[in-house]
Design a protein around this nucleic acid. Structure first.
Lengths: 205, 205, 205, 205
DNA sequence: GGATAATCGAGACGGTACGTCGCGTCTTCAT
DNA sequence: ATGAAGACGCGACGTACCGTCTCGATTATCC
């Protein structure tokens, strides 16, 4: 990261970070107001009080601006649910922590912006760096939290050691994603409990 | 219902089903050739040898045409995997049948059109009848097959009777969907086995 | 004429003169309401409660319908201003009659429909029978009245006998037409007097 | 006025006069090739190698483009027929000059483009600035030449001083217009002589 | 009186052009 | 020499009418 920034240094006057922030702020508000489909580069530039070429200088298309905008203040990190000293403090088992974690994830993604984020991830048909970063920011990071919990649970002997962790994670987070995008059943906190409960029976020693 | 239909009949030139089919055929080919993003109403009309208003007379936007087109000859039904007489013939347990079924689903959705279908489902942010029909056609119908298999398995005593079938189904199919849309891991036949295997341990008596 | 009508007779359902009248009536009202430019075949058919093909069966395009409609109840004939017994009765000289005649013509064409008629005549770039009939109905017929008056004036020795009647008529009616279409000066009754006055000095013995 | 112009300057890319000229040129050629009725905004834009919005940025509709196009190189000015030193040189009386002038006007308007121009003037039912400019360019300017000639003739004692010049001008030019638009009689050079001759008898001392 | 046939209202059809919107690029001026 | 402003070429949008056609229903003449 730092290397990239340093590479950029030296050539000409640095770009106005103020313009960049105005653009992202405008994009964010427009998405909230009218949804992703109604987001246009022209609208962003106009709302940000910025020329269109300035927007294009930073991002190649509206999708990229939207991703950047949502990553800046989208659903916030769910926080350090896995603090070393935290679990003992609350006397939560690792599995209970997983359920708590899933509840938070559900809470975030059940909101309008969360749904937008999920749709953007699903709809993206490219493999640009930004797309990867976006997926990583919103999904993979959470899945990593889940993985850490599962590994810790194995370590602690709460679940069986020969668990296929990757598949288990896809089943857990996939169930959330599936309900969110399909809409065939509610995406509420009860789901967290149900998922953990069902998964647990398969993961028990 | 009948009254409405009767009211509608008899007046004016009837809609040309030939035009309808030509439109869907053109849309299908265009999607296969250039992908969903490059699909335009104008292109569809031109390729179908049809006026633009005729396309709009049938469907409100390109998304709807695409859905209708893919539903007409998208990934075909995976077939009657649960025929009464079939399972004994092949000597497959219900759970083995589920794995076979998942393999077929994966096979279909791993193909380009399958990915397109999945993205369309995920990206749809409306609840129109067509959207529901599309989801039903491609996802819900398969999930129903899965449910039938699980219920049969319960009946036959292959898995525990107090299983939360809905959650289990969301975990199974969600895992597929998740991998397909996130692309963080391959969507291959091995996944079917892994999913069933992991899920099974939780579903055993 | 009768032969043509007899030739037309046949087996099928005869054309509905009621439909014809409804079409012309609708066209007339639409012209009055929104002007000629806003007149459409669809609008006419809808307003007349008639199918489009029925309109096309009678007239080839909207211009033709408009002409037919305006000819049916456009500016009415200015009446028999040249009745043999009428002039003596009113003790008007032929030239005074000409002025009266021009006043009536001006009165008609100064109205909105009159302006529409004039524009239609000017804008027509075809030489169809209907166009000729239209010009004849609204312009030539009046010019003929003028010619009759001039010829009579010559006969009576009110103006010189070697007058170029055709040119004189074009100058008289052309002046009206010119003001109407150019709009550079008012088209009012005073003009009738001015035209006759100026023309007369050139037409006197 | 100057303030408005100054306000407008400096911001943004200036309008391309090259595009403007290409549009007018294309419109002119299309009118000559297929006539006014076949002129479309789309055709103009395509032929000019310009986007449709650019055409609309300059003119509101096809009529306006046509007017602007014809004004740029329509029938050229008939030239300084009333040069101070010219009349004596050619030993033409003012009235003879008027006849010459009318011949030139006739020559121009008897050509296809001249007829188109006349029809456009007649058909225009608005009072936009452009319509006025168009009428002024093609008709009023010539009528002004005629007025100058008549006024000079009065000055020189060639015609009577109490002539109603405006009415006389309308009769003279109206006769041309009338024949052009009605087409009931030829619009040729003989007409110039006839008009002047007939008008003169009324204008003589 | 039944068959035949042209017309009727209705409205979908293949088209053309409309006028607008947004794209991504460019050109100019002010800072 | 950057950045806002905004025009540019382009292409698709969704709509309005065009003039034609295909329906079922109606209304006349002819056999």
């Amino acid at each position: 990261m730092k290397l990239q920034e340093q590479e950029r240094r030296g050539r000409g006057r640095p770009r106005s970070d103020q313009a960049r922030r105005a653009i992202l702020r405008a994009a964010r508000e427009l998405i909230r107001e009218n949804g992703l489909a109604a987001l246009t580069m022209e609208g962003i530039a106009a709302k940000a009080g910025v020329g269109k070429p300035t927007v294009y200088r930073w991002w190649p298309d509206r999708h990229a601006v939207a991703m950047a905008a949502l990553m800046e203040d989208g659903p916030s990190e769910s926080g350090p649910t896995l603090g070393e000293g935290r679990i003992p403090r609350r006397r939560l088992s690792t599995i209970q922590s997983l359920e708590q974690h899933l509840k938070k994830v559900i809470e975030v993604f059940a909101q309008p912006v969360g749904r937008t984020v999920a749709r953007m991830i699903a709809a993206a048909d490219d493999d640009s760096e930004l797309s990867k970063a976006f997926r990583n920011h919103f999904i993979v990071a959470r899945r990593e939290e889940g993985r850490a919990l599962l590994l810790r649970a194995i370590e602690l002997g709460e679940i069986r050691a020969d668990l296929d962790v990757e598949t288990a994670l896809d089943m857990i987070y996939g169930a959330l994603f599936f309900r969110l995008l399909l809409g065939h059943a509610p995406l509420n906190e009860a789901l967290a409990r149900q998922i953990v409960s069902e998964a647990l029976r398969g993961m028990r020693l």
